[in-house]
């Protein structure tokens, strides 16, 4: 009979689940996030209580057979939030521990290849966020941006933005997952906000943002259109590079309202 381990959706929770599998010598298991878990007749349920100590032990224990890169990949693949990724990762961890060698590059194993592909997708999304975040300067001197990435990549972006904008306060907010990363000139913090829905409305722009902000956005848009070579127009390539779902956050792609 299959045992279903239900965890709270955090990375620590997932690692605790792995700990539990080894501690209780469970076989035939399936790890599921709480909000996705569905009841079935033919399985037993176990609710995993997240335990940071247990999670840390698993994380440390993995160092022996997965190099730093392998561990990074586990974390990144986990952030993809793809259905069933937990079980793919479990397969990887199990194989690493039982074969006692680094198997991260055994691409002929479909599950390992799946991890590699997922990591690539997550990396790409992380990179897109590095590129597509558009800060707007608020009246209280904060560079503010909203995003809604396909995967939960903001934790991966923090370092990049911290290194780059070391002398300005900034906040990048994930509207989909309702949390953000904030830099206060010293450290990057995770924060939750009750964000008003109108913050992205153009009509409210002057209420939240500085006067010059709109002018700079227009300059940027002007630059964006002037640097285009019309005789080489290639919309297919254009959309391939910036899929339409990202347009709403790009000031250069928002249509002109006033003429």
């Amino acid at each position: 009979m299959m045992t279903k381990l239900i965890y709270d959706g955090t990375f620590e929770g997932f690692l605790t689940a792995i700990f539990q599998v080894y501690e209780e010598k469970l076989t035939n298991i399936c790890i599921e996030r709480k909000e996705l878990a569905t009841e079935t007749f033919f399985s037993e349920y176990t609710l995993v209580t997240t335990d940071v100590c247990k999670a840390n032990r698993v994380w440390k224990g993995l160092s022996r057979y997965c190099a730093a890169e392998g561990k990074n990949n586990i974390y990144k693949a986990f952030l993809s939030e793809c259905d069933g990724i937990e079980n793919t990762l479990y397969h990887y961890i199990q194989r690493s521990l039982s074969e006692k060698q680094n198997i991260a590059k055994d691409y002929a194993d479909p599950e390992i290849l799946k991890i590699a592909k997922t990591v690539r997708m997550v990396n790409r999304e992380k990179h897109r966020m590095d590129a597509f975040v558009r800060f707007r300067l608020t009246k209280d001197g904060l560079y503010f941006a909203t995003v809604s990435p396909d995967f939960n990549v903001l934790p991966l972006n923090a370092k990049h933005f911290k290194n780059r904008y070391a002398d300005q306060q900034w906040l990048i907010y994930d509207l989909k997952r309702n949390y953000g990363i904030h830099y206060n000139l010293k450290e990057v913090y995770y924060i939750n906000l009750q964000l008003s829905e109108e913050v992205n409305n153009t009509s409210k722009a002057t209420y939240y943002f500085t006067e010059e902000e709109q002018a700079f956005q227009e300059l940027w848009k002007k630059y964006f259109t002037s640097t285009n070579i019309t005789s080489r127009k290639n919309m297919k390539l254009h959309v391939q590079h910036i899929p339409k779902r990202y347009w709403k956050y790009l000031s250069e792609k928002t249509p002109n309202l006033k003429k």
């Binding site: 990179h127 597509f132 290194n163 070391a166 285009n228 019309t230 919309m235 254009h238």
Partner: peptide, 19 residues
């Protein structure tokens, strides 16, 4: 703690309609 860092990989911030 100045502005900017260009030690990483290049970033394409946008793409014009010519791709």
């Amino acid at each position: 703690k100045g502005l900017g860092d260009s030690s990483g990989m290049g970033i394409c911030h946008s793409y014009t309609e010519d791709g």
